[in-house]
Design a protein around this nucleic acid. Structure first.
Lengths: 227, 227
DNA sequence: CAAGTGTTTTAGTCATATCTAAATTATTAT
DNA sequence: ATAATAATTTAGATATGACTAAAACACTTG
């Protein structure tokens, strides 16, 4: 006899934000540390400790004193649900309401906590169930599985001679996004790598050569030109 | 020298909900009472007292002990801003995302607190700056002035022989909305009053006669058929 | 106009989520 | 291996917004 549906979440905005940042930090590291979380969330480390203890009691994270936290299965589901909300919202704001790609993040950041499952479903349908948001970031499907993009690679990993198409611009920073946009470095743009130096990449973009510092090239994902 | 922009509000969801209910209650009465607010908001009277004291300190309401509250100018502006958000959202959810008119209220109730001014403006533009929401309720314009609908009258006030068009269905109750919809009593429908009894109105709607209890007729606003 | 009834306010608690300062644990370097 | 440094946790406080119980006020009725 099921007394409570554990899949149904009643989480506060703060709790969801913690889960989201734990998700991002544990994409690279095995555990998310207290200090790192405090930095990302803009709160004091002591606040993080208290909150992750609570999230641990709720079964959303696995927490080891002085070590760090990782998401549990239910915590991961909550984080992915939130990520789906965020990226669908970004796409919808861009496509339906004409938001610039530098404007979508801030609005989605707030609304992601408050839209219903109905809203999520209707946005997805309106958009034709997109698999990427305006920056090219993948959108988990309604079962919270990521779409497969097996050809996606980091521009920085490629050698001279590579030709392909930008599929993803990995930053949320408005100034940086505007810079990418200014340079034409947006999803769909085609480029080839002309030369690689220690701290930059010379690329050809729409017939024009550009010198692309590693700091920027690092944030671009590409696919080999197919067809 | 202006230190703070008092027009820019940083109100909590709870505070906004109080202002909204004070607004609705003072549409009919000169002051909103503690008990009435408690009922509308689903909280204890003691909680209302504390909150309206705080809103009074913030200059959003005029509060007299044991008498009740009314909105100040800035409180009214905040309430109307919220009402604009709510009704634009209802219209947008209906028009853009295909929400039924019985579904829009609940979603708008939450989102109204969290959308930006940008979102408000883009919705309004997308919709062509509508002056009514899906139920026919008027939407304050961007200066928070209500659109003029001088011909709008209550169906209940009309005599036998009246012919006109429904412009507004004044309820948020889902079951009641579905009933109105079932009967074809929606904004735009034309009807005429055939007969008036003590507790009901016989009306003709799309060639079909209906017996409309006062409890329902009370909630309909109409305009005389122009053109 | 005084008494009783019902509404409103005050007082004291609780839960959430934050903070600072102090104490504790872990890591790094000598 | 120990001492210094850095990260983490605990303890105690604050703000918001809710609660219950008790006190204060206002209205209505005899």
């Amino acid at each position: 006899m099921i007394l409570f549906d554990m899949t149904k979440k009643i989480l506060s905005e703060a709790q969801e934000d913690y889960l989201k940042q734990i998700y991002f930090l544990t994409e690279t590291l095995p555990l998310a540390g207290t200090q790192a979380l405090a930095d990302k969330l803009g709160v004091a480390p002591a606040s993080v400790t208290v909150m992750i203890q609570k999230l641990g009691d709720m079964g959303l994270v696995e927490y080891e004193q002085y070590k760090g936290v990782r998401l549990s299965d239910s915590g991961l589901a909550a984080a992915l649900e939130l990520l789906r909300h965020h990226r669908l919202l970004e796409t919808f704001l861009h496509q339906a309401l004409g938001y610039g790609w530098d404007e979508v993040h801030e609005e989605a950041e707030k609304l992601e906590h408050y839209i219903s499952e109905t809203f999520e479903a209707r946005m997805a349908a309106w958009l034709g169930h997109p698999s990427r948001d305006p920056h090219g970031d993948p959108i988990p499907d309604s079962n919270l599985k990521f779409p497969l993009h097996p050809e996606e690679t980091r521009l920085i990993d490629h050698l001279v001679g590579f030709e392909g198409r930008i599929v993803r611009v990995g930053t949320q920073d408005r100034d940086e996004l505007n810079l990418f946009r200014q340079l034409g470095l947006v999803p769909g743009a085609t480029l080839s790598v002309l030369e690689a130096t220690d701290d930059a990449l010379r690329v050809q973009l729409n017939k024009e050569p550009y010198l692309l510092p590693h700091s920027l090239a690092q944030k671009l994902w590409v696919e080999k030109e197919s067809l």
